[in-house]
Amino acid sequence: MLHIKCPYCGMRSQNEFSYGGDASVKRPELNKEISDEEWDNFVYNRKSLRGKHLELWQHLSGCRQWIKVERDTTTHEIFNTYKADEEIS
């Protein structure tokens, strides 16, 4: 079970969180003309990365904030966690 540092609440067990997938995906702006390909890339297409991955988690049974977690998908090492609006260095 992972141990995730919520930027608001501190170190918490994985079972308080829910997984939200790739954090680098950006939703296309509303009312913007985009191609089918761009839309499909947003809705469906994801890379299954091996290694460092920036992903979303929601602290569901805690502060309910969506946070960003930088995690290694093979070793499960968590390098850093960020608030949703935090600049990522």
């Binding site: 829910s18 939200g20 939703r27 979303l56 929601q58 569901l60 309910r64 904030q65 969506w66 949703a84 609006d85």
Partner: peptide, 13 residues
Amino acid sequence: LSHLEYYLQLVWP
């Protein structure tokens, strides 16, 4: 609820 929070916190803050 999670859906609304997702859009409010991440997409349209």
